[in-house]
Design a protein around this nucleic acid. Structure first.
Lengths: 112, 112
DNA sequence: TTCATATTTCCAATAATATGGAAATATTAA
DNA sequence: TTAATATTTCCATATTATTGGAAATATGAA
C-alpha cells in the first residue's frame, strides 16, 4: 500500500459519520446494506449520506452494487486489511499483539 | 478506545506530511527526533511543522520532551497500537469474512 | 404509461484545515 | 549580560471538506 492510498483511506475513516457507516457495513458482512437503511440508522439526510458513501467508495473502503431499485453497500474487507497492515508496519514498528488476521500477511510480505 | 478518539487519531495520520512525520518518529524509536531534524528531513517550514506536530500530539500519537534547547518528539506506540486494535475490532476483527482470519488458527506468533 | 420509492447530483453556504512569514519565547553559549 | 539557535505562537490567507435542500436520475409497481 502506498503512502498516498493510506492517507486517502485514513481520511475516509477520519469522520464520525463515515466511521459509523463503515462499522455498519462491517457488521453487515458480505450481504451489505442498502443506502436507505444506513440513512435511517444514522439519521443522515440522503444527500449527506451519499456524499460520505462516495468518499468511502473512492477511498476503496466500500463497494456498491445495484440490486433492484436499491443500492447495496458492502465493506471492502481486503482494503481494510491492507490499511491495518500498513499501519502495523509503518506506525507500530511492526509490532501488533492482537490480530493474527492482520499480522500474518504483514509477516509474509517482509520488508518494504 | 472511543470512536471520537479514533476519529481524531485517524485524522491526525490522514495527512501526507503528518504521516511522514509519524513514520520518521516510529523509525527513530525511543530516542526520538528533534523538531529541527524533522523539519530538515521533510523540508517543512518551522511554523508548518509545529502545526503538524501539535496535531499529532493532541491526537495522542506523539510525545514531546524538552532536552536542552531542543524539543524531542517520539511516537506514542501504545496509542498507535490502540488505534490498530480499534480498527481490527471494528473493521475486520470478530468476523470471518476475511480468508486470512479463517485460514490462520493462531499458528505462528504469540497470540493476543 | 403513470406513480411511488431510492439514490445521486447540483449547488451554494458554511465550517474546518493548512500554510508560512513574522514576532515571541526558550534555552544555551560566549 | 548579549548573541545565537530552536521552537512555538500569532495571524491573515488559502484551500479543502461538509452540509443538506432541491432537482435529476433510476428502478420497480400499479
Amino acid at each position: 500500500m502506498k503512502n498516498k492510498d493510506a492517507v486517502t483511506a485514513l481520511g475516509a475513516l477520519a469522520h464520525e459519520s463515515r466511521l459509523a457507516i463503515y462499522r455498519l457495513l462491517v457488521a453487515a458482512g458480505h450481504e451489505g446494506l442498502a443506502a436507505g437503511v444506513i440513512a435511517e440508522r444514522l439519521h443522515l439526510p440522503p444527500a449527506t449520506l451519499s456524499f460520505h458513501l462516495k468518499e468511502l467508495s473512492h477511498a476503496g473502503l466500500a463497494i456498491s452494487r445495484q440490486e433492484g431499485r436499491y443500492v447495496i453497500y458492502t465493506a471492502n474487507f481486503g482494503n481494510a486489511l491492507k490499511l491495518v497492515n500498513y499501519l502495523t508496519e509503518n506506525c507500530c514498528g511492526g509490532n501488533s499483539y492482537l490480530p493474527e488476521c492482520a499480522a500474518v500477511p504483514a509477516a509474509a510480505e517482509t520488508a518494504n
